[in-house]
Design a protein around this nucleic acid. Structure first.
Lengths: 210, 210, 210, 210
DNA sequence: CCCTAAACGAGACGGTACGTCTAGTCTTATG
DNA sequence: CATAAGACTAGACGTACCGTCTCGTTTAGGG
């Protein structure tokens, strides 16, 4: 996400200050980790960053989008590219990394808060989908496609379903908090999914039932 | 949930009016379905229900808890008890009923909004956990335990993991909205989980690995 | 009284709008005259002036202080400077002008209400004292001092006592309402005071008794 | 003032409790002296007196009337009947007693608050006028009439004006608080009034000017 | 000795206004 | 033109009391 979220930059006039931008993001990250998204106010960010509110609104249309960018600056570097050579190995590595990044951390709290916020902020929902959900799915998709290429699972397995079955349960525990989100849980989920996929459970229904 | 959400009832003084209670819940349900939780205000509820704000605060400590109760009055009757005789049949029926109740409906929107709200409202989080999550899990648990009793799946399958694998993916699609939440999807999820469970994927790791 | 009743003005940022200030005062005067101080609410003022409540609180710390300023904008122009050449003439003119301004008028009602309000609002009490009581006394004091200079009354007359004896009875009738407050009454009061003063009644006790 | 301020007592049914009445008055006096009329709430009185709000409203129609009765239970015994034999002696004694009762005392604060409250409470205004103003005036009137009978002052002096000139200045200092209300001040006022009256200043204008 | 009716404590009720907070926009002077 | 500051309108928040209204309970006569 570049700075010019709202409108094209203009060549004329005073250029936007990179320092202002960084000060805002830094203040946002700090407030986000200290108090959470819900308690974050644009006024507090402006005041902590020693910046006018206008300078924030000029760059980000809403608190959610701003928080998303601040969140990503922390989150992305925690999700390394993975290729272990086996489906179960890849999935275990990916899901474990994710669990490690979010279970019991401010990052995890922010992730949850952003999903929550996106439910009532359509712009954030779109940005979230494009910049987080899609990015992650592309990574996971290639793991599964490699597994298909290796004939580990049936050629016509429904990749989307498999991906949702990997991350769905993990998000579920993160959001509902009813049971702890551990690496052990992640490995169990992977085990069930891999077993189910190898047994052909993810083959599309129309074909499967035929 | 009785009226005395905040403190226990007192024999003395004028009793709380059941009509007032119903009027508030009715108004809340209506506003929730029309405008959603985010746009719901206590003042609007009071005004629509022709009730003083105090009569609401006397009963419910926050907008979230009020909305939860209103939500449950709609939601609960959409989740029938189920016993089809087979694990796959039970799970398909339960998950399909859930999908039918929430996919593309105001009820679904409210459910999502409540999960979102619970992320920043500890009281609501507790109430949500007790009144929704636990209630659902008890129902699902008995299905899986019947399956174990019928020897459909291994005796030592991790019931909690299996439940999270059923509802996790469905919640995931509902919350992230990246792909449609359909009955077909529900059946695929069930197929993978049942296949994985029968293959022993849900057996606890310590034992499984041994 | 400048706009910056609460804190000193700041050079930076958007300056306070003079139009807003006038709109608030105008609305306050109108509501004060229509309904009285007791029935005046900040919310009504804001709504009539088409102004946010904050814009009122930013300028005036309480309803009483706001009402005082609105009152003064009406009242001050009704109290002309006076110099007739004789003590009785001056006092008659001054007291008659006061009686004319307050007897049976909204201004009088507001004056009474402000005195009432000041009894339970220390800030208003101070402002009232400084901006009304002291201002009036300074005017009256000079009349009496001129009379002393003309040798109309004894040099050592207690000016404070004489002033309280002029306005005290008038305020008394205005506040207690037991008898009408007329110009005739004002002239009688002046007659007694002038007669008493000339007879030496206002000379301080210690000297008087000696 | 009897208990039945609002409506006739009824022979049938449970009689009103004298203890309740006293408990309410006692609580009112205490709260009045501790916090003042402005901060007095019916709810606090009820709670302190361990009495239902209804039991208060059954007896007194408003906070002002209740406070008036509580006030009088303290005040009346501080205003003794007076007859010294001379006008100046009578007036000095009466005014000094009044000053002693109200200057710097809770009683004085309550008296001021009641006058203030009466400005926006017509019922209280009437009761105040009848039970305080008139009672005092009747006492003072007889002093002046005795002085006329003794030929101390002119037969046709305006008694009402003289009375307002005695108490007006004293009320003035009590209410405006601009200068201390002392016995010395009271004596100066009396001196001026007596001197003015003897000089014929209080004779009605129409006759006086003729 | 019951019966009836009012008083009683408690506290719920519909309202109103409070003073605070935050949102997102607008308006200055300055760079 | 961007910037920092801060004023602007708007409107919800949760609280405090108001004066009224139920409750179940108590306390007296009158029959």
């Amino acid at each position: 996400m570049t700075s010019e979220t709202i409108s094209e930059p203009n060549k004329r006039g005073r250029p936007r200050s990179e320092e202002v931008e960084q000060a805002i993001l830094k203040a946002t990250v700090r407030l986000l980790d200290e108090r959470g998204l819900q308690a974050l106010t644009i006024e507090d960010v402006a005041s902590l960053a020693k910046v006018g509110k206008t300078s924030i609104y000029r760059r980000w249309p809403s608190k959610g989008i701003l928080a998303l960018e601040a969140f990503l600056s922390e989150f992305l570097q925690l999700q390394p590219p993975i290729d272990t050579g086996s489906l179960e190995g890849d999935l275990n590595a990916a899901l474990s990394a994710w669990v490690g990044a979010v279970a019991g951390t401010p990052t995890g709290r922010n992730l949850v808060a952003l999903i929550a916020q996106a439910q009532s902020d359509p712009d954030l929902a779109i940005a979230w989908s494009e910049r987080v959900v899609m990015a992650a799915r592309n990574q996971h998709r290639s793991m599964i496609e490699r597994a298909i290429a290796r004939n580990e699972i049936p050629r016509d397995s429904d990749v989307d379903v498999l991906m949702d079955m990997l991350y769905g349960p993990a998000y579920h525990r993160l959001l509902q908090g009813h049971l702890p989100l551990t690496e052990g849980f992640a490995q169990q989920v992977v085990a069930v999914v891999v077993a189910g996929a190898k047994a052909g459970g993810a083959v599309p229904l129309t074909i499967h039932k035929a």
